[in-house]
Measured scan of single mutants.
Amino acid sequence: TKIIYHMDEEETPYLVKLPVAPERVTLADFKNVLSNRPVHAYKFFFKSMDQDFGVVKEEIFDDNAKLPCFNGRVVSWL
């Protein structure tokens, strides 16, 4: 699974690849690859589809939650 993530106000996003199927990747999986960053200091928002509003940034805080996936990749903002 490819996860593209944006940090603070930085213009260029980062990319990490996880050896987990897109439909199975969790917030804990993502946090594990960010071990060099203080993950407890961040809120995690993900590109998600809402039936009422369309594409939104959804906050996910449960480490066991599966991450929303679009075209085989996850897009996140920290």
Rank of each mutant, 00 (worst) to 15 (best):
A65S: 10
V16Y: 03
Y42D: 00
K47P: 02
H6T: 08
L67Y: 01
E59N: 08
L34Q: 02
F53N: 15
E10W: 05
E23I: 00
P38R: 12
N36F: 13
L67P: 04
R37C: 11
S35A: 11
D62H: 08
D29E: 06
L34G: 01
I60C: 07
Q51M: 13
F44I: 02
L15C: 14
C69T: 11
Y5E: 05
E23S: 12
V55Q: 10
F44T: 03
S48E: 08
Y42E: 05
T12G: 14
F44Q: 02
F46T: 04
L34E: 02
H6W: 13
H40F: 04
N36I: 12
Y5I: 13
E59C: 08
K57H: 12
L78M: 07
P13Q: 13
E10L: 09
M7P: 01
R73Y: 05
C69A: 10
T12M: 13
P38H: 13
S48Q: 12
Q51F: 04
M49K: 14
S35I: 10
R24W: 07
D50K: 15
S35W: 10
P19G: 09
D50P: 10
V25L: 07
H40W: 10
K43V: 03
F45C: 01
A28W: 06
M49D: 14
N64Q: 09
V56C: 14
H6V: 06
Y5W: 05
L15R: 12
S76E: 00
Q51P: 13
S76A: 12
L34R: 00
F45E: 06
E59Q: 09
Y5H: 02
I60L: 08
E9H: 11
D8V: 06
I60Y: 04
V20S: 03
Y42V: 06
P13A: 14
N64G: 07
S48A: 11
E9W: 05
D52H: 15
K2G: 06
P19W: 08
K2P: 07
I60D: 00
C69H: 08
P22L: 03
F44V: 01
F45N: 01
T12V: 11
F44D: 02
N71T: 02
F70T: 07
D8A: 04
A65R: 09
V25M: 01
